[in-house]
Design a protein around this nucleic acid. Structure first.
Lengths: 210, 210, 210, 210
DNA sequence: CATGAATGAGCGTTCATTCAT
DNA sequence: CATGAATGAACGCTCATTCAT
């Protein structure tokens, strides 16, 4: 099994969490990503993946032990990058809940714009993970959700936010950001910064901020 | 091919759009629904569907010409019920944008609570529809989205709502309601009326209502 | 799964244990038998079996759940016929150990001549059975071996046989009979009755009979 | 291709044909042997063999051109050792048929005890040899069988043996000895010398010796 | 509607084998 | 000898679908 760790986003601390180059996925994952995004995990064959990666079928199995392992590698890599960028975003601001909220939402929005298909696959193929892998993955996702909830709760305590139901609001914020991956297009009418500004406004409204 | 139109929800005008009995799907669709919800369209075999419906495989083909036709029938039936309930909800109130918004959002929320798996499958399996069927279905879905956008726009004109970007806000409202299907559980901590109240508040915040 | 019990040798009591018609195996087993005999279980593909049976690959799976199940069905059917004929043979003679020995050996010899490939596959593919199936099969085989051992032991007690090591001798007798399946040919120089006579002589010598 | 002839048993004249050290097979053949013994030739992959030998897959191909060549090398080496020991055994006694018979049977028995899996694989995988290799191997095996037949025939002429069908008896003797490989265990109840004594008795009985 | 039988195509996976380094 | 990368062919098995009864 080859060493793919060079592609592991953890190794690249996303101190510049706002900048997105082209995703650095190994060929097989790249191919699997677009196939899963279009046809889903079960609708994609190893031959599809191999073809998209310019490999033969056994060539794919040289790198990954099974189709399931490809899915897992893909989803973990996505979640790793998301978490890494979220942490970097939070590390770049003060302790004020408002600032922390803004920067985290912005990071989520940008990720769901610029890693559209990754984010989409990661959220839609959880059920295709084996029980064990699913547990492992869900823990990562919950960690991300908790980051939002914690900030919203802190903001309620501090009086920066006014929602009576911080957890519901936090979930709505996450839903809003994740939803972006379902409709955003690079070539759409909305410029990234525009999108961020507008949706940050919506997110603030959800938590009863100013 | 037998006539299944007797199951068409359009025939039952949902004048009581708030009340949800058990869904009235033919056995095959019922079985397909839960299978698609758990494993997706491509992860489900005709044998799965037949087994779940207590039918033989040819028995399934007696009712539907293909697996694709099952998916289409299911998705159209879901959308029909959703639209039918939305129209009934709107028909039950005045012309005031605030009332219309509230009632439509409430209807959407209730549908995504009480037709959880239907709504989930309908939104996640669009890509599994044939090109032709997909067009047909998307038109229905756009119709639903347009209902929200129209009301939000009207509210902005009338001064009831204050958002600067009615279309983005309307989409966020829809995302919020659809998202409910992803996490709501009958046996969860939130009572239906409670959920409606809280999320109606969130929806109003999104459009800058009071 | 179709009912193959009509081919089950247990249902035809082999009261005429000496007479061998053509084997009455279902087409799939017939095909598997000759393929296994020539190339072994692992050297035989489902496509080989299907082709030999005049079926498509799924056609084979309509009758048997797996390749392993084919092997098991084959081996059990062989052992059933062998045991059934052995019992019939013993049931046809007196209690005298000499008679019982002669008739059992004759039955074994004839079986290994006229069910050559069956016997060969049954003895050579035990290792290809799953652990569970192997246990089940080995019990049947031990039962057959025990029939010989019991008779030899009885003959030693009665003084009909003179061997000092009845168990070793009984195993040698079985080895002798089973070995026939490795070299006997229908079109060989030795007539069946001739073969039986000569090898019955050898078997008697092994137990120190007269 | 490296020269493996240093492992060729012909170079170690088995003048002490009774003594068995651990088998001196090259690692690849050693690994192939145990794999073939357990799962058969077709049930064994090159990766199995490589793993068992502590080699990489290309490492195996460094020593042998193909899987088939491994099988051939293994079977020839087994047969070489068997024949070499048989000749050494015969060279150690007088011309008396009885002595020659005893010593040859003893050698065969010991070989099938102490080279159990070798003997088993050699006899069960003949069908897995290519046509050409099979011919070459069968000639060796026939040579071994002929040694027995010749001695039995000589004993009949000299009056030492009393069987009316020397060839059948000789084959039965071989079958008896070969059969030992199917059930003998190092840790079984029968000591090697005991086993030899008892089975020599059985072999003598087969040829009508005293 | 059921059962039973069937099939072409395709599934995920592994095979023996090769070559560059 | 190892590692790493690769491949055409084949593996056991399942797919959606059909037809006769």
């Amino acid at each position: 099994m080859p060493d793919d760790s060079s592609h592991d986003p953890q190794e690249l601390p996303h101190d510049d969490w706002r900048s997105y180059g082209p995703p650095q996925l190994p060929r097989v994952l790249e191919s699997a990503l677009s196939a899963f995004a279009e046809q889903g995990y079960h609708g994609t064959s190893i031959r599809d993946i191999a073809g998209g990666a310019g490999l033969s079928v056994p060539g794919v199995y040289h790198h990954y032990r099974s189709k399931q392992e490809i899915l897992l590698a893909l989803m973990v890599s996505v979640m790793d990058e998301l978490l890494s960028r979220s942490r970097a975003a939070l590390a770049s601001v003060s302790d004020r809940p408002e600032d922390r909220f803004d920067v985290l939402v912005e990071s989520l929005l940008r990720f769901h714009m610029f890693r559209r298909s990754q984010a989409f696959v990661a959220s839609s193929e959880i059920r295709s993970l084996d029980a064990e892998n699913r547990d492992r993955y869900v823990r990562l996702r919950d960690e991300q959700q908790q980051m939002i909830t914690d900030i919203v709760s802190a903001g309620c305590v501090s009086g920066d936010f006014a929602t009576a139901y911080p957890e519901d609001a936090a979930r709505a914020v996450a839903t809003l950001c994740v939803g972006v991956a379902s409709w955003y297009r690079d070539d759409g009418p909305l410029q990234p910064d525009q999108l961020v500004r507008r949706h940050l406004g919506l997110a603030r409204a959800l938590v009863g901020g100013t």
